[in-house]
Amino acid sequence: MTEVAFFVGAIGAIGGAIAVVAMRNPFYSVLALVVHLVFLAGIFLLLRAQFIAAAQIVVYAGAVMVIYVFVAAYVGGIEEPMFDSSPMLRIVGPILAVALFVEISIAVLGSSLTALGTDGSDKIQGGFGTPEAIGKLMLEDFLIAFEAASLLLLVAAVAAIILAGRKKAQKEAA
């Protein structure tokens, strides 16, 4: 059963990813990424990461992608021809990427870690992946990272206002 779910999820995720790279209209690429993220959330569920999967859908596919949709609609963007990047990059880029994939795969498959061949640790408690468990960890062990992440959000918001703010605000400042 999990095998079926995994393959469905994997094919959806890979298909979405390839569509993001291959689609000529940037708007379709954005929608392809949404599809990819939804299938990826399914895979997260298989890994017992329920909270992360839900957060991914709500935050990522929900909020971040909406920003993308708005900007893609506003900016439009060029409908660039498929293979028009500089000829060297067109050849070297995919070769480099394929080499990287082969290298990582060999590393994964050739690794001596026995745990990789299993279905995952047996030692997990009932609350693995629940919001309660993750919340507890965040407040106990990773408090500073949690606070730093919120500061990061503040800084990103300030940056966005500076960059994309209205010209009126800029004239006031000058």
Partner: peptide
């Protein structure tokens, strides 16, 4: 700095320094 408003710009700078100290 003039174009973006002095305090905003400096707030970003402080954010970056905070990241460095951390």
């Amino acid at each position: 700095e003039k174009q973006t408003g002095r305090s905003d710009y400096l707030a970003l700078l402080m954010g970056s320094v905070l990241g460095m100290v951390m």
